[in-house]
Design a protein around this nucleic acid. Structure first.
Length: 179
DNA sequence: CTATTGATGGTC
DNA sequence: ACCATCAATAGG
């Protein structure tokens, strides 16, 4: 998916970006994958056919965009984490972060389950990124997932200035008043 | 530059 | 209770 072009069309007009950073969520056995907690109303789309959008609300205020990737019955998806602008966007628009890019392209939960070859959401195959320019490392924000947190399932275009910056490590949450 | 915190609501 | 995050702030 790196190098492909995501195009949206909606109230904001036409918006587009080139995918430069993604994370793979590889199936129910992947403890960071939402499908690992079973088939629920939210995760239902993951079990359906590939090539559709999985959009969900994160932290109560951010819409995150994924592409369902695997054949029907095997729940896996790829989270898009950063785009490189490919069309004129309002000044100051940032596409380096999974919630920033959905906000900038006007993607929200109304796009959940939509095929990615439609009028409001389209994913074009772009020029392939050579493997020599692809870097990989641990996924971000999934430390709860045990060994799966360390798996090198985040991939990005090595020299792209549009890749998101890893957050500073969040201090261990304040221990609940343990009794 | 790094580190920390509050905002905010759906899910199960 | 637990989050696949961001923006703003404080401090070096």
């Amino acid at each position: 998916m790196l190098g492909s072009i995501l195009v949206t069309h909606g109230p904001l007009g036409r918006r587009a970006g080139r995918v430069v950073e993604v994370e793979a969520y590889v199936g129910p056995h992947d403890l960071a994958c939402h499908a690992s907690r079973g088939r629920t109303p939210r995760t239902e789309v993951l079990f359906g056919p590939p090539g559709r959008a999985y959009v969900y609300l994160c932290y109560g205020m951010h819409e995150l965009f994924n592409v369902v990737t695997d054949p029907e019955g095997h729940a896996a998806a790829v989270l898009v984490r950063a785009l490189e602008p490919v069309e004129a966007l309002p000044p100051g628009t940032r596409l380096d972060g999974p919630a920033r890019l959905t906000r900038a392209l006007g993607i929200d939960r109304s796009h959940n389950r939509l095929p990615l070859d439609g009028p409001s959401l389209f994913l074009h195959a772009g020029a392939a990124v050579p493997e020599s320019r692809v870097a990989r490392g641990p996924r971000i924000g999934v430390d709860y997932a045990g060994a799966w947190a360390a798996a090198p399932l985040r991939l990005w275009v090595r020299d792209s200035p549009h890749v998101s910056r890893a957050p500073s490590p969040r201090r261990a949450r304040r221990p609940a008043d343990a009794a």
